[in-house]
């Protein structure tokens, strides 16, 4: 069955290595997909704060271009699209496409195909993205999220728990000083976790934590592609990280 791939603005403009990783994963597990050329930004909170109507109209336009289940690679897009589609479905009494976040998609695919990958011994601290979990959208447990951790385990990595795990990274705070203070607080917690890297499924978390964290910050798609045998250099996995792995 074909899917609609929605990569989101940040990944396409800032993280080509993540985009490459997504294509590698989809190709390797045999998922046919299309990317509607005319789709625009899903306009999460900045715009939504000023005009709910514009946000809804942009996503109504996007929705018309989507012919199948939408796979999102950024959890902020997931939240914006699924919230908008829910309102549109109630308002117009129409069928709307399902929106699936990358973590959940991976878990379902790995389970469906019974896939498990060789042990890599890399310890990963998950930065759970707020908009995937809250307000609860039945994707994961909001107070004890497990989806990304379960995917990591199946891919051969070791998810580690840490203090302040559910804390927001502050990426969508508009005031710079406050945004940086929150990022530093989160980065400190992540560094104390003993992990080798940080893993997330949100491109805003990625950008925010990359700006302060001493640990490498990766998208789950990059580690998924690595386990499946993609070329580490093309998907943005550094030498340093590879040296920390068993069976890289």
């Amino acid at each position: 069955m074909s899917m609609t791939l929605y990569l989101g603005c940040l990944i396409r403009t800032l993280y080509p290595e993540v985009e490459k990783a997504v294509y590698e994963v989809l190709g390797r597990i045999g998922v046919v997909f299309e990317e509607p050329k005319g789709a625009s930004c899903c306009a999460p909170l900045g715009l939504f704060s000023l005009s709910k109507n514009a946000w809804l109209r942009l996503n109504e336009r996007n929705m018309r271009l989507f012919q199948s289940t939408v796979l999102t690679v950024c959890d902020d897009c997931f939240a914006s699209l699924s919230d908008a589609f829910k309102i549109l479905s109630e308002k117009n009494n129409v069928r709307v496409p399902e929106v699936k976040p990358f973590g959940k998609f991976m878990l379902e695919k790995l389970e469906e195909k019974g896939l498990r990958f060789s042990f890599k011994g890399l310890r990963c601290a998950v930065q759970h993205s707020c908009h995937l979990l809250r307000p609860a959208r039945n994707v994961d447990n909001a107070e004890n999220p497990m989806v990304v951790k379960n995917v990591l385990e199946k891919l051969g990595y070791i998810p580690v728990s840490y203090v302040s795990e559910l804390d927001c990274c502050g990426g969508l705070v508009f005031e710079e000083k406050m945004r940086d203070a929150i990022a530093r607080r989160k980065a400190e917690a992540l560094e104390k976790s003993g992990a080798d890297c940080v893993v997330t499924t949100c491109s805003h978390c990625m950008r925010q934590l990359k700006s302060v964290s001493r640990l490498p910050v990766l998208h789950l798609a990059q580690l998924s592609a690595l386990s499946m045998g993609a070329n580490p250099e093309e998907i943005g996995i550094s030498e340093i990280l590879l040296r920390r792995m068993v069976n890289p």
Partner: peptide, 30 residues
Amino acid sequence: VFELIEQIKKTGLAFPLSNEAYEKRRSLGL
């Protein structure tokens, strides 16, 4: 907030494509 909206009006995306990302996209064949 307005910078994001202006960018969407310009390219349909909320963020501009950096030169570095442009080059990387080309080398990866995206």
